[in-house]
Amino acid sequence: MIVQMKRQEFDSLADEALFNACFKPLILDYKSRMAKENSSMVKELFYKELSTGQKALFVFHMYYDHAIESKAEFYWWSAYFIAQPKIWSAIKTGLQYFREEPMYILLEETELVLKRYNCPNTLEKFAVTREDLDSNRELSASINSLYVDFNKTAPLTIKELSDFIRYNYENFVKIED
């Protein structure tokens, strides 16, 4: 599941392009497997087959792709992943792996805010809706502030992850000369 590319292409990719290029084979394989059988066992097997770096990239990219869309999406997907402690922990552990402290701290703050507003810690009790922000001004203001910070921090996080990939490419990319 490691992306293959020529040295010239690898060296010329901008940060977000490299971030996406290393994620693409992972998500394509994941979606292919899930199309055949959508089960937690298939998800766990897929995840176990990834290197530590790929795991960190995969879980953060999954979160980022959804959370960046809007304040409501940031709120809902954060709550959704917090309700799945293994996934939320993997996202934060991945950020630590990349030594990406600012985003890690932001996710910790997001978790504290959501828990203050009774965010469920399992999917069994999950009843969070995007419309919650319309009916709770305090929650909406807190999430708005976090989402603004997320938008400021995300490009820096992508740069840090891309720099990490450049210096540890063998975990993410097979260079073809």
Rank of each mutant, 00 (worst) to 15 (best):
K152A: 15
S142G: 14
D149Y: 08
K159W: 08
K115A: 04
R116W: 08
F81Q: 06
Y80I: 02
E9F: 00
Q54A: 03
K71F: 01
S142W: 05
L95Y: 08
E170H: 11
Q84F: 07
D134K: 11
E101L: 09
Y167Q: 15
I82W: 00
K86A: 09
P102A: 06
K31T: 10
V128Q: 06
Y64D: 14
A154M: 10
E37D: 13
A56Y: 06
R130W: 00
I82H: 03
F81M: 12
E176A: 11
Y75F: 15
A56P: 07
Q54T: 01
P120V: 08
P120Y: 02
I87K: 14
K6I: 11
F81C: 03
D29I: 00
K125L: 06
D163H: 12
I87G: 10
I143L: 12
N171D: 14
L28N: 14
K115R: 13
Q96W: 05
M62A: 12
I165V: 13
N144Q: 12
N118S: 13
E176M: 12
G94V: 02
F164Q: 10
H66N: 11
C22I: 02
I105S: 00
A14K: 12
Q96K: 15
K31V: 04
C119V: 01
E9Y: 00
L112W: 00
M103D: 02
N118R: 10
E170T: 12
T110L: 02
V3W: 01
M103P: 01
Y167V: 10
R7M: 14
S78H: 07
F164D: 09
A67D: 05
T93G: 13
M1E: 09
R99D: 15
A154R: 10
E124V: 11
L123G: 12
Y63N: 06
F58V: 06
N38L: 09
C22K: 06
I143A: 04
T93I: 02
Y117T: 05
L114H: 06
I143D: 09
L112R: 03
N171S: 11
M1A: 11
D134Q: 11
V113A: 11
P85K: 10
K43P: 00
I143Y: 11
Y167T: 15
R130H: 08
N168L: 00
Y169Q: 13
E160N: 08
V113Y: 09
F81I: 07
S145Q: 13
F58T: 08
L45N: 04
F150V: 02
S78R: 03
R130I: 07
L50N: 01
L45D: 07
M62H: 13
F46A: 01
C22H: 08
L106F: 13
S78P: 03
A21S: 12
L133M: 07
I87S: 13
E131L: 02
F98W: 06
K24W: 07
Y64Q: 13
W88K: 11
Y97H: 15
G53T: 03
L114T: 05
D65V: 06
S12T: 10
S89D: 15
V59W: 06
Y147F: 15
S12I: 00
Y75V: 03
L26M: 03
F23D: 01
Q8L: 05
E124S: 14
K6Q: 12
L107K: 04
D65Q: 14
I91K: 01
D134T: 05
A141C: 09
Y30W: 10
S51N: 04
L28C: 08
S39M: 03
F81P: 00
S51L: 07
S70V: 07
D65M: 08
N144Y: 12
